[in-house]
């Protein structure tokens, strides 16, 4: 966001430049822009209009009351909500120490850790889920799919791997703005243990950065389909697929709700990003 405003302010004096357009011509530019706006906006308008059509002959919010009142919706939505909270906590517990150690103790490990965090973007989700079914089935050495509770845990682990790229980048960006070496040494000289350093010194300092990773993880987990479907857990993603095959107007209402949630998450990420420098300046 900081880069954006900078780009805009730095663009302002360039108004004085000669009139000759250096990009595509002005008319072509507007055409492209309007095409983009139409392409992006029409499906949103379309899904909203469609979601209001449930009652014959008049617009109504019937599809929304039907969806929100569906016990299945409530159950799967809260299941995914809890899952995302567990995933975020797990991701934080794994990534924060690793990112800090790479900075202060093991800089040589940075390429390895970074490579690992990029892997979930390279390996298709369905392949990881497939691997889980093979490695953790009931006849394996770690039969996690044997009970409901351990399957839930396995799903949370799966989601945590999907969140790795985002959590790591967010936390590492946060740590970059700190003088972690000095903070660590200062804390140690005052007798702080590693737990204190990690969760009472580093965490509050990178909190806004963590938030942006957390909201992204939240929006990913909420809509995730493949893992939940293959591990056969009653999550929100498989529920949406089911509604899509069985109802007419409710899917559009669900899409509106999902879009609102995505928008909310991205808005909160930007808000977190904007808050970060201020809180630091105030200190």
């Amino acid at each position: 966001m900081g880069e954006m405003t900078e780009a805009i302010t730095s663009a302002a004096p360039s108004k004085a430049r000669r009139a000759a357009p250096i990009g595509p011509g002005r008319l072509l530019s507007w055409t492209l822009f309007i095409f983009g706006v139409l392409y992006f906006a029409l499906p949103l308008i379309g899904m909203f209009e469609f979601s209001l059509r449930k009652r014959r002959g008049a617009y109504s919010f019937d599809a929304y009351t039907s969806v929100l009142g569906d016990p299945q919706f409530q159950a799967t939505f809260s299941y995914s909500l809890i899952m995302s909270v567990v995933t975020i906590a797990l991701g934080l517990l794994l990534v924060l120490p690793a990112a800090l150690w790479v900075r202060i103790r093991l800089p040589a490990m940075r390429p390895v850790v970074e490579f690992i965090t990029l892997l979930p973007l390279v390996i298709p989700v369905i392949v990881i889920a497939f691997g889980y079914l093979r490695m953790f089935n009931t006849s394996s050495f770690l039969p996690m799919t044997g009970t409901v509770m351990t399957t839930n845990l396995l799903l949370a682990f799966g989601y945590s791997t999907l969140a790795l790229p985002y959590m790591y980048r967010a936390i590492d960006n946060g740590l970059r703005t700190l003088d972690v070496q000095t903070l660590t040494e200062a804390a140690q000289s005052l007798g702080a243990g590693w737990f204190t350093i990690l969760f009472r010194i580093m965490l509050p300092n990178v909190f806004t950065a963590v938030l942006s990773g957390a909201f992204l993880t939240f929006s990913i987990v909420l809509g995730e389909y493949v893992f939940a479907a293959l591990l056969d857990r009653p999550a929100f993603g498989p529920y949406m697929i089911w509604i899509g095959g069985n109802k007419a107007y409710e899917p559009a209402a669900l899409a509106v709700i999902a879009f609102a949630i995505t928008w909310g998450c991205m808005g909160l990420i930007q808000l977190a990003g904007r808050l970060a420098p201020h809180t630091r300046a105030a200190r």
Partner: peptide, 16 residues
Amino acid sequence: ANFAGVPLAFAFIATL
């Protein structure tokens, strides 16, 4: 970019 998956399909079915 993050509005993918199932809801995106629903949005297009409702539109086109």
